[in-house]
Design a protein around this nucleic acid. Structure first.
Lengths: 339, 339
DNA sequence: TTGTACGCGTTATCAT
DNA sequence: ATGATAACGCGTACAA
């Protein structure tokens, strides 16, 4: 193994000092054109390679950014990360990913290890509704490095977030179902302690009241975001004396489960029951009975998150909180088209 | 902002030297129990936080691992990364992800920036069939840090890889179609310069010949791995004088496109044409006409890749090349079940 | 068991 | 324009 060459080696070879070499390598103006040239040339000859670690230690800037999500193997989160990585790559940053599996302790641990690794910022979709009471969280604030929430945010003064308008999304989905003639609209929600799920629920409620439809608590079911939970929810709904004629689900996966159960019971979609999901996972489009859903433009969400981060590192002094709210798009497919 | 506390600060407070503090913090045996205790206690009191960057510079070990893939927003790659991250987390490593979009230059650039960032290893699915001729690639070898291929590998002596048995997968899929009574079996392949696609093709060929079915070049179509390409391929196939009665695709996405085109032309699946895809993407299971596919157990593949990496860093001297070959599983669904 | 002194590779602040 | 030196925060061989 050839020992790695440092700026010292190349300085020795040229009978100059390491400082000069460093200047040549960093486009420092205080250097003559000639020496700069020869330094760059011999650097190339000696296969010199920057040690970003040493730079990071010296400059207090690692050019690493931590991204924390619950899990990466869902199209929604994977797409966000795609957007983040693509955008940050252009600015020389690397993306470190961490998964919490929705576990609060994992989330705290991930924050701590990221901070110890001296990341320049943390972008996260929260797994803990009380994150602001968490010590690890406070460490981020203390360090004064940018912290950004995307998707699962918590509204905290001074902390920027990038989300879609979940209230509007819930409203749009519900209004659409009403427009299709549905009158008893169920809502499959997830933990409403998270703002995104509460907002979708509130949008749903508002659309109902705007259309003079009485809100019926028994039509709201809290589920996990998976197929089995969707089936269970549908079973409950179909047992009601007065079952729903539509389901708006905060998750594509529970929407799919509900659809499977409904069809298994011989009930027709969309004629008897219309269904709208959430997130526009690829399968919703591919199915023969394609599923209507809310598109959250995750790649754009990721890119935007990255851009806000870049802005914040550039204006470290005059940091301004940004609450970016992207527009959700209702995508109407067969599961809710009665025309 | 409270200035970050270093081992120096805590040494000063205790009237000892930084070296002793370091020893206390690193379970160094050369220290008394009593001083160790008090150091740890005051470290906690002063909110001391390890600077992994400084450690990394000193020890030549960053505890960061680079993972390079074409893109993260496919369930297959996302699941692999999930497996890698989960496994590596337990060993204190962070995962840096890089996407190439199948661009060779991006791949080389990613390698270079990862090396400059002093990662302890690189795990990658290659985007360049001539990667071994690449300078960036040679840099990895020179640095003597572990390099592992997963999925899209290239067989290079001394380099470990974790893949499924693609030949066997191609064979299994084809044999299954033959068992269902198909006689003219088409194959949608991707760039056969990549070993995985060539192996799947070879397995397909072998199954044909083992069953005394004549190989027909006109039934093999090279496509991209997306829906449109699948549609185009199906159009070509259906125009043949003697169209196929089965399609084995190296990609679930082109399989889906083919299915859409076939159905659009009023041809029945599986009665007229059976279809088998590859990768077991979630949508293949969810569709009403569920799609048979080959499962590559991506999470397991990721975990295995991580484990092999850990082994290699632990036995840096007696490094032994490992070629792990996981077993593919044929998952038979409606698109190829005629019973 | 503890302290001293130096090095990891780089950059920034002084001089010259 | 260039050189000398210190510093980033930590770990360790050597000496005490």
């Amino acid at each position: 193994m050839t020992k790695k060459t440092t700026i010292y080696d190349i300085a020795k070879k040229l009978n100059i000092t390491a400082a000069t070499v460093s200047r040549a390598l960093n486009n420092n103006p205080k250097i003559s054109k000639s020496t700069k040239e020869i330094v760059l040339r011999t650097a190339a000859e000696m296969n010199y390679e920057q040690n970003k670690l040493a730079q990071a230690l010296k400059n207090g800037k690692s050019f690493n950014v931590g991204v924390i999500i619950s899990r990466i193997d869902s199209n929604f989160f994977a797409s966000i990360i795609r957007g983040i990585e693509e955008e940050l790559f252009n600015h020389g940053y690397h993306v470190i990913i961490c998964q919490t599996n929705n576990n609060e302790n994992m989330e705290a641990e991930n924050i701590n290890t990221l901070l110890n690794a001296q990341v320049d910022g943390i972008l996260m979709s929260i797994s803990n509704i009380d994150i602001d009471k968490n010590d690890a969280f406070k460490r981020i604030l203390n360090k004064k490095i940018p912290l950004l929430f995307f998707d699962r945010k918590k509204s905290i003064p001074g902390i920027s977030s990038i989300t879609i308008d979940d209230f509007s999304a819930g409203y749009k989905a519900t209004q659409h179902l009403i427009d299709e003639g549905c009158k008893r609209i169920s809502h499959l929600t997830v933990d409403r302690n998270f703002e995104i799920f509460r907002d979708r629920f509130l949008g749903y409620q508002k659309a109902l009241s705007d259309n003079n439809i009485l809100f019926d608590e028994s039509l709201v079911i809290e589920t996990k975001s998976n197929i089995e939970a969707g089936k269970d929810a549908a079973k409950k709904l179909l047992k009601l004396k007065n079952p729903p004629d539509a389901i708006f689900s905060s998750s594509d996966f529970s929407a799919l489960g509900a659809i499977q159960e409904i069809k298994a019971q011989g009930i027709r979609i969309p004629q008897d029951i219309c269904v709208v999901g959430f997130s526009n996972e690829p399968f919703t489009k591919f199915m023969e009975l394609s599923i209507s859903s809310i598109d959250q433009s995750p790649i754009e969400m990721g890119k935007t998150t990255a851009r806000v981060f870049i802005e914040q590192v550039k204006n470290k002094e005059k940091y301004i909180e940004q609450k970016v709210v992207l527009d959700p798009t209702l995508i109407v497919r067969k599961s809710s088209s009665r025309k």
